[in-house]
Write a protein that binds this DNA or RNA. Structure first.
Lengths: 192, 192, 192, 192
DNA sequence: GGATAATCGAGACGGTACGTCTAGTCTTGTC
DNA sequence: GACAAGACTAGACGTACCGTCTCGATTATCC
């Protein structure tokens, strides 16, 4: 074992407390789920987390940035279910169904984040990079498995059509049910 | 002849001035195009129009409501081009192309309106009714002409996939070019 | 009478409400008397007055500026007692006694204002002009009546010694009793 | 050098470093002279001294307390000049002149400390004990030498009038020149 | 034409969130 | 246990802007 002293961080001073970070994220999550993004203030999050506002702004640049991270892990975990890799299943359909199901809880928060992304370029880039692109890659992988011969462009177009339709209905408060997932699957499969 | 003046209204008092209405709409349009929705305040719109804030709120319930109307006519006119009904054309493709083209100017404003719809239920309903549904009906008509035998559900699904993909790319600041229009057209045609 | 139209004010728009002004001043006065200057926040004053913080900042540039005005009228009235002009009295002694007596209530606030004047040049000038100079003029008048032959410099020096001593004891939390007033009177009279 | 244990103190652990203490005091002095008390933060002092904030608060209870000590020695030394004890001089006048002269550099800091004393009782007591009382005793000694027969009350009153006038002018940003010192001397001598 | 009523521009109003700032404390790892 | 570094809580600050209300003036209909 090398590395005499000096842990990973290397930086001097009191390190950022993971407990505080976790408490803030949990507070943000629960408050936004209950009251909605716009009704939750940074002061409320800080109070609920037993933290100061400064602790928030030391970690994230803006309220939207914080809430994005608060919902990231959750959003991913609910869709990329490990148990979903069962052979023989219709993996594409299952993916879309889980996506729609996950949106019943985190949907309102994601709508607000998409809204925030419209007025703040810096946040839009983070939102794109940390939420949109990973989700897109996950769906692409499912599609690529199903259609090994499909071109890059064809896969991208299918992803755009599928997520586009889902976001469109989410943002317009129209139902995201299993039927939609089934029909979208059929449409895209036929179109590829 | 009696009935000295008395136009249709019948109400006493000074009537709403159409000039003021037009000035407000024009001011809102130009300011939002230049600075973006969030950076424009109701006070700025009033000042630019030479009007008072009260004049705005006498006509519309919220800033979003006003900006919605400011962009409605423009949005429709640019897409539903009368000269577009030339026989023999690929009308679906032309419709999508004009839609994408129109979004290069009014796109930012529409993004902001979609954002506003996420935090305000009352506005979301107006937005749905006055912008989303008419556009949807227009696209549906084009599709129905092309596929007279298609079922209602099939048409709706195609509309959702097409507008969904376009909104998705618009909201994420990804390019809306002719190529996208062509590929989407192909995908949906194959999938119906 | 001339004056075609246009009443006195001339300015358009809703005028500043004297009621709101009065409510803010009263709230500031009572809160500062009870809790002390430092413990009172602008938000507390606004809430107590049933006003918004913006209403405060529209009228005064800073918390100290507001509290200064809140204590001005009171400070003057308590000292420049109309009944004090009784002939035959020792007017100088009476003036100093009333000054000391008035400081038992408004003293803490004035100490805080003097403190605020140390860190804010703009406020120091206002404090000087609106509180210090008027008080100085009042004391000077009393002295001038007693010593009609005294030179300007002699009067100014006496005023400085008298108010200097009183402020010095006030700021250091030392008692301001009748005895002090009597002794100061004697010292200055002998010294002129 | 050996000397395992420590010298006199007896306490275990690393002793407080006098170098750090001196560096902090010097940093506080120079920063406050340049930027003023309010504009200097504890973090700035620590950084300038190459110390940590904890090193400050290990030695003094508050920022004001630290700055008080930073200016104490200087303030005393400048006034209680050993060379001033020359016989035959007007010692009272010389004392007041040196006092006024010293305030041209340390005056702003002392004003801020007097201000801090208004909002913090604990500090006001320290300020009184460590700065005000010693100065008062020094002036009293000069007066007592001049007037051996004067009563305690008379001496105290003269001190109050002299320092009162000086502080009054200092706090109100009015000039503290030799002329003032001369006139005050005359006033008090005549009044005793 | 005189009374009534609603509009007009201007701008103050209450309410409320934001992000910043600082004081003084606590927690690291090092010496 | 002091040290430098820096995260921590607590909470005030001043700004911003929404949608409403008030003011005096104007412009219409109704009688």
């Amino acid at each position: 074992m090398a590395m005499s002293g000096s842990s990973a961080s290397g930086r001097a001073g009191r390190p950022i407390s993971p407990d505080t970070t976790a408490a803030i994220l949990a507070a943000a999550r629960s408050l936004v789920v209950v009251h909605g993004f716009a009704a939750v203030t940074t002061a409320m999050i800080a109070a609920e987390a037993g933290a100061s506002k400064q602790a928030l702004y030391r970690r994230w640049t803006t309220k939207a940035d914080l809430v994005l991270e608060a919902f990231l892990a959750q959003a991913q975990a609910e869709v990329d279910d490990p148990a979903a890799a069962e052979a023989g299943d219709d993996r594409l359909l299952a993916f879309l169904r889980r996506t729609c199901a996950a949106l019943s809880t985190s949907g309102p928060a994601l709508r607000s984040l998409m809204a925030a992304a419209q007025e703040d370029d810096a946040f839009r880039r983070r939102f794109h990079e940390r939420l949109i692109l990973p989700r897109r890659a996950a769906l692409r992988a499912v599609l690529a498995e199903e259609r090994p011969a499909a071109s890059t462009e064809a896969l991208d177009l299918a992803v755009t059509a599928l997520f586009g339709a889902i976001w469109y209905r989410l943002l317009l408060d129209e139902p995201l049910d299993d039927d939609l997932a089934r029909r979208l699957t059929a449409l895209v499969r036929a179109g590829m």
